[in-house]
Design a protein around this nucleic acid. Structure first.
Lengths: 125, 125
DNA sequence: CTTGAGGTACGATGCAAGTCGTACTTGAAG
DNA sequence: CTTCAAGTACGACTTGCATCGTACCTCAAG
C-alpha cells in the first residue's frame, strides 16, 4: 500500500550542472515552477501537470528530475506520486526555487540576441 | 581604439531557459564561476580562462554566453575583452551568481542516482 | 479471471549542440 | 610591406537529448 520511494542523489550530492541541465528543458521547468509555487509541498499525481507530450516522454522527464535530485517519485505500481524536495534543494542551492518564479517578468519580451552590431554605434556603450 | 560592444539581450529580456542552457555546459559554467568570484568585475582577456578546448570552440562558448545576456564581449579586432554583466543578472535573476559559488560543497561526491530500490526498504522514507 | 488505465522498458528517429579542421580577417610588431 | 598571434566564419563530424511507437507490467474494478 505504502508506495516505494524511487531513489535519487543525497542532498549534499546535488550537482549544479545536472540541475541546470534538468531545468533547461521547458517542460521540466514548468513542472518545477508549479511545484515551487505550491508552498504546501503536497504529493501530486504525475498527470496533474498538463504536459502536451506523450506519457513515455513524461516518464523520461520525471526520471531526469528525480535523478537530478529535484523531486521524489513514489511508485504505487500502476500510479505514481511526485513530491518536491524543497528542503534538500534549499539546503544545497539556496534561492534556486525562488529563481523559478522569475519567469517572464513584465511582458513577453520577444527580443532576440544579435550576432554583431549591424551599424556604427554599439548598443550598450 | 575603443572596442565595439557586441550586443546581447537587454536586462529585462533575459530568458531563464536560455540562461540555464548556457550554464549547463561545464566550460561555460567554469567561466561564469570565475567571473562571479571576481567582485571587481574588471575586463578580462578571453584566453585568461584556461579552457582545454580549441579557440574555435571558445569563440562558440563566449558567443552563447553573450547571447544569453550573461557577459559582454568587447571586440578590439585581433583581441577580445570579456566582462560580466553582474548588475543586469542581479536585477533579473537575483542570487543566480551566488548560486555558481556553490559548486562541489564538501567532498567530490561520487554518488550516482539509481533507477529503483533494489531491496525492500526505500532509501529516504 | 478479464478488462482497462496508468506507467515503464526498449528501440528508432530527428534535431540541437559541442568539437575541431581549414581558411580568412584584424591589428600590432619588425 | 611582411610576419605573426588572436579571433572569426564555415562546414563536417559526433554526441546527447527529446520524442514517440510498440510491447510489457501493475493494480483495481467488474
Amino acid at each position: 500500500m505504502a508506495g516505494r520511494n524511487l531513489v535519487g542523489p543525497e542532498a549534499d550530492a546535488l550537482d549544479l550542472g545536472t540541475v541546470f541541465r534538468a531545468l533547461a528543458d521547458e517542460h521540466r521547468r514548468s513542472v518545477m515552477t508549479e511545484l515551487a509555487a505550491d508552498r504546501s509541498d503536497s504529493e501530486r499525481g504525475c498527470n496533474s501537470f498538463d504536459l502536451p507530450i506523450s506519457k513515455q516522454t513524461q516518464t523520461h522527464h520525471f526520471r531526469v528530475l528525480r535523478e537530478a535530485g529535484l523531486i521524489d517519485e513514489i511508485d504505487y505500481g500502476n500510479r505514481k506520486g511526485i513530491r518536491l524536495r524543497r528542503a534538500d534543494i534549499e539546503k544545497r542551492f539556496p534561492r534556486l526555487l525562488t529563481l523559478l518564479g522569475a519567469e517572464s517578468p513584465g511582458g513577453t519580451a520577444p527580443r532576440r540576441a544579435q550576432l554583431s552590431t549591424p551599424e556604427g554605434s554599439p548598443s550598450r556603450p
